[in-house]
């Protein structure tokens, strides 16, 4: 049994200690906004917040997150920064297929919480671990700038 706090709610899960948080969220808890893209921390599709920090759920065993706050994309609508990021994403039509975008938004939101006014290089560095096969990178960048209160770059 492990006890996880996910989006402010406690969940008791009967899973092995080494089960990655990604699969616990998706298959056991039933929160499927967190996506599987690679399983080896190379793509960022599975990004969640662990005590506010962007974390790859696919390589994080549930045993490592006991007693810590797990936040997923499903909770971003209740987060002030998350809301701004989501709104910017919609305004700029960022998503294509959308599969990577939950992870992108989680990563971007974590960035803006620690660095409220990132410059372009800050954003590129912070987002380099999040793959988008559809190639929406420039819109992601512009949306992060927009959410940070700066205008979209031209």
């Amino acid at each position: 049994m492990v006890t996880l706090t996910i989006n402010g709610r406690e969940h008791e899960l009967d899973v092995p200690d080494n089960m990655p948080l990604l699969w616990a969220l998706r298959d056991i808890v039933g929160l499927r906004g967190t996506k599987f893209g690679c399983g080896i921390a190379e793509c960022g599709a599975c990004t969640v917040h662990l005590d506010g920090a962007a974390t790859r759920a696919c390589i994080t065993p549930v045993s490592a997150v006991q007693g810590r706050e797990v936040t997923t994309i499903e909770a971003m609508a209740d987060d002030a920064v998350g809301q701004r990021v989501q709104a910017a994403w919609l305004d700029l039509g960022v998503a294509q297929c959308g599969y990577c975008q939950g992870g992108q938004i989680m990563n971007a939101t974590a960035l803006l919480k620690t660095t409220p006014e990132p410059d372009t290089q800050d954003i590129v560095d912070a987002m380099a671990g999040n793959l988008c096969r559809c190639g929406t990178y420039n819109r992601i960048l512009a949306a992060i700038e927009r959410a940070s209160g700066k205008e979209a770059s031209s």
């Binding site: 499903e74 971003m76 959308g98």
Partner: peptide
């Protein structure tokens, strides 16, 4: 607005 836009950014798609 994109048909699936809100679902995508909120993890509901």
């Amino acid at each position: 607005k994109a048909i699936d836009g809100e679902d995508i950014v909120s993890g509901q798609a």
